[in-house]
Design a binder for these strands. Sequence first.
DNA 1: CGTTTGATTGACACGAGTCAACACCAGTGG
DNA 2: CCACTGGTGTTGACTCGTGTCAATCAAACG
Lengths: 244, 244
Amino acid sequence: MLIDGTKNPLIEKLLSGNTLLQDDRDGPQRLCSEVVVIDGRRDLIREGEEPEEVHLVLSGYACRYKMMDNGHRSIMALLIPGDFCDLNVAILGQMDHTIATLGSHTRIVRIPRDAIDELLTHHPRIARALWWATLVDEGTLREWLANMGRRPADQQMAHLFCEMFMRMKAVGQVNDGGFFFPLSQEDLADILGLSIVHVNRTLQKLRGKGFLTMAEKEVTIKDFAGLAEFATFDPNYLHLRVKV
Amino acid sequence: MLIDGTKNPLIEKLLSGNTLLQDDRDGPQRLCSEVVVIDGRRDLIREGEEPEEVHLVLSGYACRYKMMDNGHRSIMALLIPGDFCDLNVAILGQMDHTIATLGSHTRIVRIPRDAIDELLTHHPRIARALWWATLVDEGTLREWLANMGRRPADQQMAHLFCEMFMRMKAVGQVNDGGFFFPLSQEDLADILGLSIVHVNRTLQKLRGKGFLTMAEKEVTIKDFAGLAEFATFDPNYLHLRVKV
DNA sequence: CGTTTGATTGACACGAGTCAACACCAGTGG
DNA sequence: CCACTGGTGTTGACTCGTGTCAATCAAACG
């Protein structure tokens, strides 16, 4: 089954960091059977659960988060088209965080674990590529940690937009510098560890510098070079072969 | 070769979350050939490198860090006895961060990649246990991210000490509530994303509450229950079977 | 011994949180 | 058709946690 009649974001993603043959590409194409469309925030898997199916984002956004005892939601990862949500829960035994959708028009595929096992067994290059993907996730986590700990809010936010721009581009979701971004300022606050009010002001600052616009569920990067310099963004940690 | 003549921290660690047979335990025991002893801070592998050997911490501390453009050092993980430093660089191609020792009396083993491959091939339970260990690392990273983003400095620091206590306990490095902890307050600052001055004051606060002491390269947890409650510490993310 | 590294303290500045009010828009139901 | 609602974005005033700067002190060290 073809996604959107054109590109499969999972394939795009794996290609951006790995070498795959045509035969490898046919494997994942056949997986996408049970597609679910979700609007708004909905939990897909909760902390403590041990799901029987693996979730893959086809379009829109999902996230990993934890609810803190003080009532705050802490978002620890953004999942975009081509990202697996819970490839590894089989080994760890249970989820130590919750997966949820964000924004509108999210399409999720539920893939039976058997199908994944089959893929890993018969497509060693795919298996390695998926292993690569989880390691990139870990690198991204480290980058977020450094970004959050040691940078002021404006650079931190600029860094996030640089990352999302490159990640969306790597899966073919960027058109003319713009990409779908239906997250609210509250979502951004929970990602960056800031208050909503401060997110609002920081966004205005970035807009004022002419770096980007964010309106109608769409972000447009108007000056990537300037934004990247301001954020001191170094895309090494994404391990992409494709350069912008 | 036996470590310390008694326990091998790697075995201890893997046992704390997995089921291993005696046969599995003999494998890693034979790996520890080339042991290096290091005092103070020294880089083991730098960002951009692609090492031919895998590093394992036997005693003391190592860390993952990045130098930020603004001169700050951001520490993104603490590696304690039994932790691998760079098991995965073979897949990603190159390191996206630097590994360094911290404090004194650090003992590191360098293991040829071939030996690891052999272990992974002939000891499937070990392979799974190592895969488990990297997933736990990722969970820890998420917990640090949530911890840093959404908690005040005192709870954040309390949380760190709770984690280190449980991790050290899981590898048999805790005696009577105390464990070796040779990190300076500057190291702590770079872990928590705080200034040195504020680390100092926050430490005094925790001492003042009677939770712990930190002196002469040793941390002693005097009231773990109180500390854990104060930090709202939930050890789920460590995926340990052993309870305190 | 001087030198260096790490711990400690005080005074002050500033970034970011909190509280509160208001504007805007999309539903939605009477 | 319009009041009412809830979600989101925006703004101002004020507070407070943390950073910065600077000085001092203790211990380790060559």
